[in-house]
Amino acid sequence: MDQVVGPKYGSRGGAGKAYNQSFAREVYRNVDSGEEIKMCMQCGVCAASCPLKEKMDFSPRKIFTLIRAGQREKVLSSQAIMLCTSCYSCKVRCPRKVPVVDVMHGLAHYALRQGYKPRAETALFGQKFWGNIYRLGRIDEKDVALRYFLGHGLGQGIKLMMENKNMGIGMLWYKRMKILPERPIKNVKSLRKMLDKAKAMGKGGAV
């Protein structure tokens, strides 16, 4: 069922090559905004507009093609899906209105849920960031940073703190850091209930 034979495109192309569409179907079904890639026509404007394209193993355009070619492992372990800064340059220029940012975020979330860690540092930071939202309803900048540093283990955490020491002191000195810990919002309990429910209802990670 999943094996379809590619059409004959002239003498070269994918003549007679079997494409496995099961991963594309998995993406459409399980990845947030995944079905949007059906609109992609491979023009490459997203790649040309991306500020971090040179740091990516595959450009967004290539990611979309790899999905269609059934390259599950390559896509879910790709660095690119976690290098999106959400600058929306691609989205505003895409002639087919693919929300590339949302697709990349959806793929990254799905990959993390499947046990892949394309960019471990950003994954750790994002995890601490979300932890703050769940615990407090808000972000306490110093708290997220500290938890991120210490999330590397004590030794490495202290090393990272030393690297960021001067910036931290500067923020304190110029009164741009709250000294006291952030208090949770008033209705944080109902917010947590909402987030639990949304997690159960949404796709973004279903297997």
Binding site: A108, T122, G126, L195, K199, G202, G205
Partner: peptide, 8 residues
């Protein structure tokens, strides 16, 4: 997106 799905 790291911690939450799109609906969250």
């Amino acid at each position: 997106y790291v911690g939450g799905n799109e609906l969250s």
